[in-house]
Simulated assay, not measured.
Amino acid sequence: MTTGNAGHSSELPRPLDGPALAEELARQKDVQPIHSIDDLACDGIFDTDEELDEFLEFTYAARRTDLA
């Protein structure tokens, strides 16, 4: 007498990773391609001019760190 599960797979589906995961998440969220830079533009990203300035300073500093 065998105690195995003949014909029954006890393996769980393999989790998605890499490009397959990205494609599945995009499908689930109905993501559409960007057709122009205008698709990215929107108001209200930064609450104040100071927040924008901090972001720009951080971005410029991060770009310069790899130059040396």
Rank of each mutant, 00 (worst) to 15 (best):
T3M: 08
E54L: 08
E11Y: 10
L56C: 07
I45L: 13
Q32Y: 01
Q32D: 03
R27C: 00
P13I: 04
G4Q: 13
M1Q: 06
A41W: 10
D38R: 07
T65M: 12
D30M: 09
P15A: 06
A22E: 15
Q28W: 03
T65R: 13
E54F: 05
R63P: 02
R63W: 14
I37M: 08
P13F: 05
L40W: 00
D49S: 05
P33M: 01
A26C: 11
S9K: 02
C42F: 11
A68V: 09
R63I: 14
D66M: 07
P13H: 07
T65W: 11
A62E: 15
F58V: 02
T48Y: 04
S10L: 14
T2E: 12
T65Q: 13
S36P: 03
C42T: 11
F58I: 00
D30N: 15
A61H: 08
R27M: 06
A62I: 02
D47P: 02
D53G: 00
F55S: 02
S9N: 09
L67K: 07
P19R: 15
A68T: 10
E51M: 04
P19Y: 10
E50G: 00
T59H: 11
A61N: 14
Q28R: 15
T48D: 03
A20M: 11
A6H: 11
H8Q: 11
G18F: 06
A61I: 01
D17Q: 10
V31W: 15
S9R: 04
D38Y: 11
A26M: 12
D43C: 01
L16D: 10
A41L: 14
L56F: 06
T59R: 12
V31H: 09
D17Y: 06
D30A: 14
A62R: 13
F55H: 11
E54M: 06
L25E: 13
S10F: 07
A26I: 03
E51V: 00
E23P: 00
T2A: 14
M1D: 12
D17A: 09
T59W: 09
T65F: 07
L67N: 03
D38G: 04
S10W: 05
L16V: 04
G7P: 01
I34W: 06
G44A: 03
E24Q: 06
P33A: 02
L25W: 03
I34T: 12
T2V: 08
A68R: 11
Y60I: 15
P15S: 05
L21R: 10
H35S: 08
Q32A: 07
I37N: 03
L40T: 07
A6T: 14
T2G: 10
E50K: 05
T65N: 08
C42R: 15
F58D: 14
G7E: 04
N5C: 07
D47A: 12
G4Y: 05
P33I: 01
T2I: 09
A62Y: 11
F55N: 01
D53E: 14
L67I: 06
V31N: 04
L21M: 02
G44Y: 06
L25G: 00
A68L: 10
I45S: 00
L12Y: 09
D66P: 00
R64A: 14
A62G: 05
E57F: 05
D66R: 12
L21I: 00
A41R: 13
I34Y: 09
F55D: 03
D47R: 08
L52K: 09
E51R: 03
P13M: 03
A22S: 07
N5F: 15
D43S: 08
